[in-house]
Amino acid sequence: MTHLPYIAASYGLFAIMALVFSIGAALRLKRDRIRLATLEQKAPRKAGAAPQS
C-alpha cells in the first residue's frame, strides 16, 4: 500500500475541514444566542420584530 500517504492526506484534509466548519458554526450560534437573549431581556418590547438590515 504505497499510496497510503495520499489516502491519509485526503481523509485528513476532509476531517480538518469538517471539524473547523462545524465547531465554528456551533460556537457562533451559541455566542449569538446568548447575546440575543441578553439584548432582548433589556428591550423586551422589540422582541420578535423582524430585523432591519
Binding site: L36, A43, K46, S53
Partner: peptide
C-alpha cells in the same frame, strides 16, 4: 439572522 437582529437591537 441573529446577528442582524442583534445589530438592529
Amino acid at each position: 439572522v441573529m446577528e442582524s437582529r442583534i445589530r438592529a437591537l
